[in-house]
Amino acid sequence: MITLGIESSCDDTAAAVLDDDDTIRANVVSGQDTIHARFGGVVPELASRRHMEAITVVVDEALRRAALDLRDIDLIAATQGPGLIGSLLVGFSYAKALAFTTGRPFVGVDHMAGHLLSAFLEPVKPCFPYLALIVSGGTTALFRVDDFFTFTLLGRTRDDAAGEAFDKVARLLGIGYPGGPAISRYARQGDAERFVLPRAWLEEGSLDFSFSGLKTAVLNQYRQIGDHRDDRLLADLCASFEQAVVDVLVSKSLLAAKQLAVSSLVLGGGVSANTALRTILTDRCRAAGLQLYLPAVQHCTDNAAMIAFAGRKWLQQKGPGSWSDDVFSRSQLGQVSQTFR
C-alpha cells in the first residue's frame, strides 16, 4: 500500500509518499524561514495564504519525486487537527477531494500522533512501550506510547513551550530569528555557569513543564546588565538559558522513565534539532541505561511522512474516514480516551 500524507496544521504545507515497508519515497515541506526571517517571526498571514497557494505544488512535487502518478496512491492521509481551522481545512479538504476523484480511501490523523510515531520512519524502530518527549514552538509534552493507537499524556507545559521560550528570549536579546538556532550559535561560545537561572521543577514528582519564569529571569538579568552588554555577556546568557531549558527537559524525561519503569525514549518536535539537547540527552540516557531514539531532524519537525505513517496504521485498525469527518481545533489525544482521536 502506497500512502500519500498531507499536513497543513502549522506554518508549513507538507506532502509525503510512503511505501508499504515504510520507505519514504518523497518528503516535501514548504520551507518558509527565509520569508519569515525578514519579519522577525513567523507570519501566519503569509502562511495561511501559502497553504492554499502551496498545496497543489507541494503534493505534485511529492508525487514527482516518488516517480508516481496519483492513480498509484492507495491511501490519502491528512492532518485533521489540532490547529487553526482555516489552515487545517486547506489540507484536509484537498485530501478528501483527491480521495473522491480517485476513489481511494482517506483518513484524518491527529498531528501529535504523527510526532509520537515519527521514530518509525527510521531504520531502527523503537519497541513498545516507550516514552516520547515532544518539544516544539507550540508544544512541550511527555507521553507514554503503548502501541500505534494508545497514548497517555504524562506531562505538558503550564505556560510557554520550550521552542516559544527560545524564540521569545532571542527576541528579548535582539539576536534574530529563528530563535533556537540564534541562541545556540551564541551559546556555543558562552559559559553556561555564568548566570544562575531558575529551573521550574514544580511539585515533587511532577512531569509538567514551565518556562515562563525562566524567560522573565533572562529578561531581568538582561535589564540589570544594562549598558555593560557585549557579545561575551550575550553568549554567556544564551548558554546559561539553553542549559536551563535542556536540563529540565532531560531531567523530567529521565524521571518519567524511572516512574513508569519504561526503558526507551523517543524525541520529537522542532526543538529536537537543538544540538545541546541531543548531546546531553544522549549522554544522560546512556548513563541511566535508557535506549534513546533520535529521529532525523526532518522527521522530528513538522512533516507529512509521519502523517502518512500514522494514517496507514489508523486505516488498518479502524477503517477509512467518512465524508462527514471535520477538522478539529483542540486535540484530546492522550487525555480522555487515551486512544487515537
Binding site: S136, G138, R158, D159, E164, D208
Partner: peptide, 9 residues
C-alpha cells in the same frame, strides 16, 4: 492548563 497560544494563535 491555560498555556501560551503564541504559536497556535
Amino acid at each position: 492548563y491555560v498555556n501560551s497560544p503564541s504559536f497556535a494563535l
